[in-house]
Design a protein around this nucleic acid. Structure first.
Lengths: 192, 192
DNA sequence: GTCTATACGCTGATAGAC
DNA sequence: GTCTATCAGCGTATAGAC
């Protein structure tokens, strides 16, 4: 676990942004090279193939998510606090309405991304869904959340809303994301 | 309004499928040419640029939507029936869990699609949102739908759920879409 | 309306010098 | 770790014959 060199990090950072703005097939090594003022070949040194780069970006996000949910400061929050934290991930993704979440992007062009990237997307999706399912179940047992369906279905619903409203916000430049989050919370029984 | 020649139609049909499977930047004229066993140039005859093709596909979908909502058989449905009809559009999009909806696809790579296609996507989004907003408002006034937010926000929520759950269904190969639709209906006050 | 032929920049990618 | 040089193939697109 040595400190990663700056160029490698910069590439990943930019690739992450480009992925959310343009989709996997919407950006190229040339875009990255020009923006970072390095040569095409330098990127290939760090990430031999574009698939490697894509996988690295999503795999890092998976590691981050795992680290976050293991953190004491998250675990000690009550169920509403954890729900808010989860939604804040999407809010952070959104970048003020200009960006959407990775999963929606990758899922939307699923048949046009490399196999390993498909696997990463699937894995991140599953991990987020599983965590949220557990949270919803716990909240219901505590009497904090009210819903009728099974927790897994509710988790899909909540993530769908976050993902979808972010996408809609992008073209309508409205605050649809925040309004959607509020509605989800109210639906779960939040008293404002 | 003459009958469109078959090749032109076939191209649009295939482009529509490819768009939903792979995204706008995930397919090429070559894909279409090989699949339809015509030459690259033949496609350029019908659609001089790829942007033209993309716009044609979405513009047709806009026309269809307009025609549908103007149809007597739709207009005479009660509000629940119209909601079901609206959701069935997404169900039809889904193609049994393998496909997602245009709007999510285009929104997810919004910065990497041509300007005119951005405009079409925005327009279709607005038209669907407006129609659904009116429906929700009407249903509430009739006492059929129960919700607290303004109808426009609720419309965003409903479309977000449809769009998002279709995307999730694609990678989890679950029936998340149907479960999501059920939850939305229950949320609006549907008694099963 | 469809074809052949062709243009030409961009794409992801490699070899080898520094 | 980054560079120059170079690659083959793909991308969209056009001109002109049939």
């Amino acid at each position: 676990m040595t400190a990663e060199p700056t160029t490698r990090l910069k590439i990943m950072e930019l690739a992450q942004d480009l992925l959310r703005d343009k989709g996997y097939n919407g950006f190229s090594y040339k875009h990255i090279a020009e923006e970072l003022d390095v040569k095409n070949a330098a990127i290939h040194y760090h990430f031999p193939s574009k698939e490697d780069l894509g996988v690295a970006v999503i795999a890092r996000e998976r590691r981050r998510f795992k680290k976050w949910i293991a953190r004491q400061s998250i675990r000690e929050l009550d169920v509403w606090g954890r729900l808010d934290w989860f939604m804040s991930i999407y809010e952070h993704y959104s970048n003020g309405g200009t960006r959407v979440c990775y999963l929606g992007v990758l899922e939307s062009s699923f048949d046009a991304i490399p196999p390993e990237l498909q696997n990463e997307a699937r894995a991140l999706n599953t991990e987020m869904l599983d965590w949220l399912t557990e949270l919803l179940e716990e909240g219901r047992q505590q009497g904090e959340f009210q819903f009728e369906s099974d927790a897994a279905s509710k988790a899909v619903l909540v993530i769908s809303v976050a993902q979808g409203s972010l996408q809609i916000a992008r073209v309508t430049s409205s605050d649809s994301f925040f309004s959607a989050v509020q509605q989800v919370k109210r639906d779960l029984g939040f008293q404002s």
